[in-house]
């Protein structure tokens, strides 16, 4: 009796193991035979995408609202009232933005507003802390998110020193104008974190980010690793600062003061 039960269990175990191996093997061969993948011919490529913002040109709530509207419309970002809101790009004053109170500042700078967005840091803490790689760093420097994989633990929000991330506390579609959705882009679901994606979906088809397009030249976007690029040219010609450089995250967004 004991002997046969032992053998039965062994057999059952082996069968289960076999089934696992078989199903794992099956998952590898999915796409049609002879298929291949590649880029769009129009794709914009870079080694390190970066953005330079001329705050002399976009330095008011109104001008920044134009950028935010373009961004939020392109990505179906809901407009939620209250403190559980979601924003990819928004305006803030000098002290809020740069964490360095300066007394007796020049009046223009004191009243200026600054567009804030995800910095797509080189050493991004959000990428470091994400337990599922739902936030990950692409080879071109963009800190991207896979909303399919996010479990909503919000560790990335605690990790981000720039407050760039928003959590979908509720169903975002309740706060979207469903008639005016961008049908080329998804919405998000309740329970995941989201943030600016440097318009990776537009770069893939040769278009500049939505905010850059709406900025009439105040925002410059390009490859930081290419000395001949537009961003490098602007950086050479102007005094720029980045947010919280002391933290060593190496932000990819520069501000012309």
């Amino acid at each position: 009796m004991n002997h046969t039960r032992r053998n039965f269990l062994k057999f059952a175990g082996l069968t289960a193991a076999g089934l696992c191996v078989a199903s794992a093997g099956g998952a590898l061969a999915v796409s049609g035979a002879g298929s291949a993948i590649r880029d769009d011919e129009k794709v914009l490529k870079a080694k390190r995408w970066a953005m330079v913002i001329d705050t002399k040109k976009v330095g008011t709530k109104e001008t920044i609202a134009v950028l935010a509207k373009a961004c939020h419309a392109a990505h179906n970002v809901p407009d939620i009232p209250g403190k559980q809101n979601i924003k990819w790009l928004w305006a803030a004053g000098f002290e809020e933005a740069f964490d360095q109170p300066n007394n007796y500042m020049d009046e223009g700078l004191e009243k200026r507003e600054f567009p804030l967005l995800c910095n797509h840091c080189t050493n991004a803490p959000c990428v470091r802390v994400c337990p599922t790689q739902a936030t990950y760093k692409r080879a071109d420097g963009i800190v991207a998110m896979d909303y399919h994989r996010c479990i909503g633990c919000r560790y990335c929000m605690a990790g981000c020193p720039f407050g760039a991330r928003s959590f979908n506390f509720m169903e975002p579609r309740l706060h979207l104008d469903l008639a005016a959705l961008n049908k080329e882009f998804p919405t998000r679901m309740r329970g995941v974190v989201e943030k600016c994606n440097f318009c990776v979906e537009r770069l893939a088809h040769g278009k500049q980010p939505a905010c850059v397009e709406a900025s009439q030249g105040a925002l410059v976007f390009g490859d930081l690793s290419d000395p001949a690029s537009e961003v490098r040219k602007v950086l050479r010609e102007h005094y720029t600062i980045r947010r919280k450089p002391a933290l060593g995250t190496e932000p990819g967004v520069y501000y012309i003061i």
Binding site: V129, P131, T132, R149, C150, I151, C153, R154, G191, V192
Partner: peptide, 21 residues
Amino acid sequence: DIGQPQRMLNVLLFPTPNSIL
């Protein structure tokens, strides 16, 4: 606490040693 508890096992499916979580 997590927003998508049904995806919780993603922590095991995509083990990420650089995350303290």
